[in-house]
Design a binder for these strands. Sequence first.
RNA 1: UCCCCUGUAGCUCAGCUGGUAGAGCAGGUGGCUGUUAACCACCGGGUCGGCGGUUCGAGUCCGUCCGGGGGAGCCA
Length: 462
Amino acid sequence: MNSPRLKTVLSMQPSPEPVTVCGWVRTRRESKGLCFLEINDGSAVESLQVVIDLRADGLAEETPRAGTGASVEVRGTLAASPGTGQAVELQALSLRVIGEAPPESYPLQKKRHSFEFLRGIAHLRPRTNTFGALMRVRNGLAAGIHAFFQERGFVWVHTPIITTSDAEGAGELFQVTTLPLERLPLADGRIDYARDFFGKRAGLTVSGQLEAEALALALRDVYTFGPAFRAENSNTSRHLAEFWMVEPEMAFCDLAGDMDVAEAFIKFILRWVLDRCPLDMELFDRWIEPGILATLRKVVETPFVRITYAEAIDALGKAQASFEYPASWGADLQSEHEKHLTEKVFQGPVIVTDYPKAIKAFYMKLNDDGKTVRGMDVLVPRLGEIIGGSEREADAEKLRARIREAGLDERDYSWYLDLRRYGSAPHAGFGLGFERLVQYVTGMANIRDVIPFPRAVGSAEF
RNA sequence: UCCCCUGUAGCUCAGCUGGUAGAGCAGGUGGCUGUUAACCACCGGGUCGGCGGUUCGAGUCCGUCCGGGGGAGCCA
């Protein structure tokens, strides 16, 4: 059994030479003596129409078992279709139902389902048009990400999943332990992590950035593309407990260079997926987010607006819009502010730089004003922040001061400080939430619908 | 974690101010030589999320728990 994919068959010319195809039945339409099966194998959005003459030998008996959801093998000849809606169709010579899908219990019907319902059957939803297209676009974006960095000579590095450092501060880590939870070993009344598997407290990584910095300061340009985990109790359409993150890190690079790469990166992968998944993208443009294709094409061609945080606050202050929270220097930009900047003022991606140091991470390079840091966020319409990045603090003493200010223990960061003690160099990087990118590109409203099996607070089914 | 909305047939939903449950689609059967949201006819299908309360009477009102969604915060 080694039949061609339906995508291949759909592009073939009509021929009297029989072909064998396999797939799952999407719909079945019956008339007297004639049956139309729509079959799909996930290799393309389009399905193949199979025409069955119910008066032919053997076909009438097998056809009733080929209901919606059943897997079938059809041998037939490809012919030009007299009907509208498809160029070619398969005239069945033989039909074999491989696996039945009892119609009274098969959850997927030949009609549209709500995403809420499909979330409850995450193991079957990839068989729908939307999720098929989604997985193919997701794959296209992942391939485009690797292509972008590989073409530019970046080295893909694999940073640890289990870690004992925490780039963002404490409290959001999933703890990893082999200690018996029902009787924890104590030392002076506190949990004795010395007796844990790693001899100290460990968790799942929230970011590979710190380790990526170590590799960039040896290999120059590197990137990570792997899973990250956050145990935050946030229940929104933009957060997952387990998600994939892309984090380039570049030595001998400043904030301006960082922004250049970020902008080129977004444009490259958008162009990549528009070129390679046109039919899948049409589905999203038609059913999920009308206008998304035009928007993405425009983003590819238009320079991203670059403003400082101070300028953003200024623009927001002048806005006619009434905000729930007024924009004032020192406070982080609210969702409503990000939306206003990207959707109303600039109508496209905006890069905001030079945030107050108090609202950004300790590793960002301090500006000469002593108040702001060399951080940048790429904001996009509808989603807000899609990329967060910065030039890193390369001065050991300034970094040590920032660690102390942040209330962190310097001893936990000794290896990180070493990177500045020995052959320090300016370096910069950014992080992109992969699922947020998929959301941005497809227009899908909920992040739980852009990953096959979502993990979020209170929910880790399948 | 906070605020708001929501839970009725397999799915999507209707059910006004309390009087004992309905539509469309899906499914089954039959009809129709080319359908593509197929069409036409008939049929089956519900502890109205759980528990408790008010009431002669609760899908409807109240309390509580559970599930789902949207927004906020935090962030990617």
